[in-house]
Design a protein around this nucleic acid. Structure first.
Ligand SMILES: [Mn+2]
Ligand SMILES: [Mn+2]
Ligand SMILES: [Zn+2]
Ligand SMILES: [Zn+2]
Lengths: 171, 171
DNA sequence: GCCGAAATTGAAAACAGTTTTCGTAATCCA
DNA sequence: TGGATTACGAAAACTGTTTTCAATTTCGGC
């Protein structure tokens, strides 16, 4: 029931498809194709999970060490604007990015002990939000739902939980 | 059905109760009572809504212009630590604080046009989250649910919505 | 291919919100 | 009331992100 999505290995075909979609976007906007942007997006799309700027830059530098933060930030903004990528913030002060294989919306459970992030989607939950909004005469554009807690099945997370109590949330 | 909470005028008795609770907290921690902290907390508890640090400092300065950012930040941390106040972040890059008359948990709807924030609580929604977590062997410590959108009943918000499309979310 | 306007890059500076430092002042218990 | 301890406030530091700016690259038209 309501399975947590497993993070897929990025599918090479899908990656190419996205690269093409981004190229389209760039062209439509009258922007230029550059070596750096190509490096950045192809690196990004081949990563999985919720990637921070620093993580991405580190990977990118392996392909081209001269690429700097500014270009990565700028390219991520373009990716978001293109709709191919979503920005997330889970309260650790870093922006994280995910470019999902499927465009589906989903929500997150974040383990405060091991940092693992589970993704889930539940239609009843979504519908309930809609109906609550409706009742208050509110029109939802988007929402965010994050459950913070601990993995129950990992001894490590349960062990740590007992001493460190609830890890403080920074930002 | 599932009423949006109206922001109450802070009740003078409740405010005094909280001031006392904070004094207790300070004492239990072996900290000292200071004029500045008293000014800050009594100002804070008499405000309503989701207060930013700058907003609070502005108010505080009316009582004592010599109080600075550092002390306000430090006092807010203590308030959060005491459990009397919660920190919120709605994606505009500012921390906001609320000290609720009732300790109840609640979630938020945020109008991206006029900035108004509605609070709501729905037991079915909460229960559904629990059961989803259960299914994934996840233990929830806390969660955050925010619905971003627009007031349906304010012409201004509907008007603006049509041109500015969805306001971008900064942080 | 070459020109040149327009876009892009990268290093460094700027920014914004928040935290820390550090010298001075206030608190409060023995 | 002495004096160890805690707090204050201004300014500096910090962090993640954005902007600036001079130099480089792109690309449509010749
Ligand atoms: Mn995700
Ligand atoms: Mn609230
Ligand atoms: Zn959802
Ligand atoms: Zn809730």
């Amino acid at each position: 029931m309501v399975p947590v999505k497993k993070l897929r290995e990025p599918d090479e075909n899908l990656v190419r498809q996205k690269e093409a979609a981004f190229a389209d976007f760039i062209q439509r906007k009258g922007l230029k194709t550059t070596r750096q942007r190509n490096t950045i997006i192809s690196t990004f799309f081949r990563l999985r999970g919720h990637i921070s700027v620093e993580e991405l830059l580190n990977q990118v530098k392996q392909a081209n060490p001269r690429i700097g933060y500014a270009t990565v930030y700028r390219t991520l903004h373009l990716l978001v604007e293109s709709g191919l990528v979503e920005e997330r913030r889970f309260g650790d002060g870093l922006a994280r990015y995910e470019g999902h294989s499927d465009v589906e919306h989903h929500d997150h459970m974040i383990c405060l002990e091991c940092g693992e992030i589970f993704e889930f989607f539940n239609p009843r939950l979504e519908a309930l939000q809609e109906s609550l909004a409706e009742e208050n005469n509110f029109q939802i554009f988007r929402h965010r739902l994050e459950l913070y807690g601990a993995c129950k099945d990992k001894e490590a997370c349960q062990r740590r939980k007992s001493r460190s109590s609830v890890a403080a949330q920074a930002e």
